[in-house]
Design a protein around this nucleic acid. Sequence first.
DNA 1: GACTAGTGTCGAC
DNA 2: TTACGGTCGACACTAGTC
Length: 322
Amino acid sequence: MEQRVVFHVDFDYFYAQCEELRNPELKTKPVVVCVFSDRGGDSGAIATANYVARKYGIKSGMPIRFAKKRVEQVPEAVFLPTDFDYYADISEKAMDVISKYADIFEYVGKDEAYLDVSKRTEGSFVSAGHLAQQLKNAVRNSTKLSCTVGIGKKTEEIFAQMDLKTISDLKKLDVFTLNSKFGRKIGAYIYNAARGIDDDPVSQRQEATQYSRITTLKQDSIDYDFLAKDLERLCEDVHATILKDNVVFKSVGIQFVQSDLSTKTKSKMLKNSTSSLDELRKTSLQLLHESLEGQKMPVRRLGVKVSELSQVSGQDSITRYF
DNA sequence: GACTAGTGTCGAC
DNA sequence: TTACGGTCGACACTAGTC
């Protein structure tokens, strides 16, 4: 098996870094990017926070109110709503630069990617180190963003730390331990490689397998009509994406997040694939009706999901089969 | 028991 | 004292079939 060299590139505190980019004065202040819910006030959660904010114990996923408490005595702390269009724009530019450095490029999310650079580095850690530095410089020059590039060297260090010397040492570890030490992607790759399975650790991103929308209700409720109104809006939203991406779906699901934040889901497989908004609406409303039977706990958030997607090749594709 | 399709839950980002 | 988003993929579980 040839030596694989894989880069994991990610932008730390990406959204906050984007905000610093358009307003450099923020750099010295705690910057907290928030997803505010429809409930108004400070209802919502933290998407990301820069290092200054993290010093105060502010972390992703934390309730906004909680985070505000943490910096009560810090008047310069800045809380901003997310601006996903702007972040997507910057991400696209950055990924454009990054992908040029890969033999195989895998986009994972707005702020993360995997690069297989085995060919261009010929498996050498020395040239991989140089390439990583060039990549960081190129990203900085073109976007002014800083990113971290993790490479196989680090994997070697972790092996040494964990006193792993042989393949049979590796085989003793379960995939969860490996994932927690190396990240899911590399963890799974090591797990397979130790068992003689040489799957590519990096592969071109496939099409999405599901689309979903979720919203926080104005108030907790188990009233069908109240929930149905939001659900219909969510259906229309998902449907717009379906049309834009020219896909059909075969499975429809709804999701409740209950007032104690526990989750409940219900889904249904359709007889045929479709892109019909009517069918999406009808099915999800039916699932809502069924889910509310015997539902005791009020619902806080409501979501809809379509999956089992397939691409429609052309508008006339269906008629062509008849 | 092995396999699969369908369903529900969990957690990363 | 408590506080709580949105989107996605992975995977575990179950029931049906052979």
